[in-house]
Amino acid sequence: MAKTGTPYDIEAVRKEWVGKQTEPVPGRYPVEYDPIRRHCHMIDDDNPLFLDPDYAAKTRHGGVIAPPVMADYFAGQGIWPPSEDGPMLLREVPTPGDRMVNLINEFEYIRPIKIGERLSSYQVLADIFHKPTRLDPISTWIVSETHIIDEAGKVVAIGRNTLLTHRPPEEVAADPNGTGGSK
């Protein structure tokens, strides 16, 4: 998100941003064993299909696959080192506040993802609107889609995310309705 000052013109932002689509950007690294291991460690998942190459080789998959929920991880850049690559929509769309809470997440997993694959992704901004919350009367909601594709350009997974953005309490207290002081 790109924080803007107030007043904030939601209709102007909608007109400019809804429907915008980024170009596909490759993930930083191929699908690898160790991020899968760390993912499984954080949730105590001992599934050998994700962890044990010898076991997985004997299954219908022929080798280790990533947990389906990791598709977007391998299509992304990771948090560090900082990268200017990757779909930038959510970093660029203007919002009144710079705080955010992830709320609704929908995913469709088309096929298993194997070690060594290279994934890319592009984003589409599906919607942006105001809906008040207890955090901020001008809470701003962003709905985006992430399409994850393989090296052939075929979609392997689709994510749809609804993100709540809001201002911190001191900014809300100073200007609750985001009018910038105007009546």
Partner: peptide
């Protein structure tokens, strides 16, 4: 879900809300 479907099944869709 992946525990439930095992090696032969597949998770096609999932939706959740962080309420």
């Amino acid at each position: 879900l992946t525990d439930f479907v095992g090696d032969e099944g597949w998770v096609k869709k999932m939706r959740f809300e962080m309420r």
